[in-house]
Each structure stands twice: as structure tokens, then as C-alpha cells.
Simulated scan of single mutants.
Amino acid sequence: MKILVVGATGSIGLHVVKRVIEIGHQPRALVRNRQKVKLLPRDTEVFYGDVSMPETLTDVVKGIDAVIFTLGSDGQGRIGARAIDYGGVRNILKMLEDKRVRLALMTTIGVTERLSDWNQRTQVHDWKRRAERLVRASGHPYTIVRPGWFDYNNADEHQLIMLQGDRRHAGTPKDGVISREQIARVLVSSLTSEAAKNKTFELVAERGKEQADLTPLFDALKVDEPQKIDGIQDLNNMPLSDEPDCIVRELNGLLLP
């Protein structure tokens, strides 16, 4: 597969690109900062563009079979969250037009939590959740992964746990921890797993060894309900009827037959 990695030079994206190469796929890294290209493996195809500027993305999806989104606004507040966490996903999906590819989107554990001071100030959870909705509405086969806190694992915490319903809202590593390498493995593996298709889950690691086969974990998950824009068992605390008209129009505009 030729896989477009959006957010390729970020802390998760670099692991994703490496994993893609290791298992025999071809990565295409979408890169905004040219100085970060040196961080990528030599076998990486590089495409220069900015996810928040659609005019720079012409041909970025040409010839690809899948997209992995690991992008993040990194504390840039409401403007960054809307332009990158949400806008970046929207812009790439629009570039796909009627080309059907496999998608893997990384958001965050606690993405449905709306009342914390942090989300009230930045709206990052809300914009990431809207990006999830775009992916579900797009008609492309997808997997949405909501990882816990990156690399907070203890030395004996490697057993992968996949949860659904997003009920861990402490806003601290108590919600769950996971290594960056494990996140990359799950994202890349989901692209070729029928068992991971159209599923949304939180990903954490607990005490124990990492499983060699992810299929039983994917199999145990429930599929998102067709025609619904939120993940299975998610809280109904951001009704579409309360969303701005512009967001509803963009959601409707991405619906594929």
C-alpha cells in the first residue's frame, strides 16, 4: 500500500512512517516544515504542503491507498484546533473526492469530555471530535484510535487494552497510558484489518506483555452504528442540532453515496 501520513514529522507520525516501511508499505509524508525532513527515514516519499492551506495540497492524495492522520495543533488554542485538528482532516478528505481509501485517524482519550477548563479554553476536544465525525460521514472505511497519555508507561505496562464509550475523563495519566510505538503499530495495522473496519476505540496499555496478534482485540470491538456521526456508546453531549451551520454544511458536503 502507498500510505499518506499526515503529521509525519510529529512525535507519533515519525513512528508511523518507520512502521509503514518496516512492514513493507510505501509512506508518503506530508511535511510543512522543510527542516524536519531530515528526521524521516531515507525511503520516505516527501510531499511539501500545509494541511490548513488546501491550495498547497494539490496531488497529495494521487496514487495513495490509505491515509493515517496523526496531526495535532499542539496547544495553539482554538484557532489552531479548528485549522489543524479539524481543518486538516477536512481538507485531506475533500482532496480524495470520489476516490475510496482506507483511513486511520488518531484523536485522544477523553475526546468527548467538554467541560474541563482546558477544553473550554482551547476547544481541542470539540474540534477533534468534529474531525472524527467527518471521517465517519465520509463513506471511507476507517479506524479511529483515541490513545491515552504518550509514553507514561511503567516498564511492565505493555498489554494493549481497547475500550469504547470514552468514559475516562480525569484529564491526567489516570485515564490511561500508551507508548508512541504502540500507537503507531495499531494505526498501521488497522489499515489492513477487516476486524478494525469502522470502529472507534480508546487505546491504553496495562501491566503485561504486548500481544503479538491484534486481530482478537479488534474483533472484540463493536462497529460504529451506520448513519450516526459519533462513536459507538459515546456520550450524546454535542448534538448536531447545536452545531454551527458552517460545521453542519461541511459535514453534509463530505457525505459519499
Rank of each mutant, 00 (worst) to 15 (best):
M1C: 08
K2M: 12
K2P: 01
V5W: 01
V6A: 06
G7W: 07
T9M: 01
S11L: 10
S11N: 15
S11C: 05
I12C: 02
I12N: 01
G13S: 03
L14C: 04
H15W: 00
H15F: 08
V16E: 01
V17N: 02
G24A: 06
V31W: 09
Q35I: 07
V37D: 04
K38Q: 15
K38F: 01
L39E: 13
R42H: 09
T44W: 04
T44H: 03
T44A: 00
V46S: 12
V46H: 11
G49V: 11
S52D: 04
P54W: 07
P54F: 00
E55R: 10
E55W: 01
T58Q: 12
T58P: 02
D59G: 02
V60K: 03
K62N: 04
G63R: 02
G63N: 10
D65R: 05
A66W: 01
V67C: 07
V67E: 06
T70N: 02
S73E: 09
D74C: 03
G75S: 11
Q76Y: 01
Q76C: 12
G77Q: 08
R78L: 11
I79F: 10
G80M: 10
A83E: 15
Y86A: 04
G88S: 08
L93T: 08
L93Q: 12
K94E: 14
M95W: 00
L96S: 11
L96Y: 09
L96Q: 08
D98A: 03
D98Q: 13
K99H: 14
K99I: 06
V101D: 08
L103V: 02
I109K: 14
G110I: 09
V111F: 09
V111Y: 13
T112F: 07
Q120R: 14
V124R: 07
D126I: 11
D126G: 02
R130Y: 06
E132G: 09
R133L: 00
V135E: 06
S138H: 04
H140N: 14
P141M: 00
I144R: 05
G148N: 13
G148H: 05
W149R: 07
W149E: 02
D151N: 13
N153S: 08
E157S: 09
L160W: 08
L160S: 10
I161R: 15
D166Y: 10
D166W: 04
D166S: 08
R167S: 10
R168Q: 08
H169S: 03
T172A: 00
D175I: 03
D175A: 12
G176V: 00
I178C: 13
Q182W: 02
R185V: 02
L191V: 09
A195E: 15
T200H: 05
T200E: 06
E202A: 15
E202T: 05
L203I: 05
V204Y: 04
V204A: 10
V204K: 13
K209M: 10
Q211S: 10
A212Q: 12
T215Q: 15
P216N: 07
L217R: 11
F218W: 12
V223Y: 09
P226C: 06
I229M: 14
D230R: 02
L235T: 14
N237H: 12
E243D: 14
E243Y: 07
P244W: 07
I247H: 12
I247A: 14
L251P: 05
N252D: 12
N252L: 13
L254A: 13
L255D: 05
L255S: 13
L255M: 13
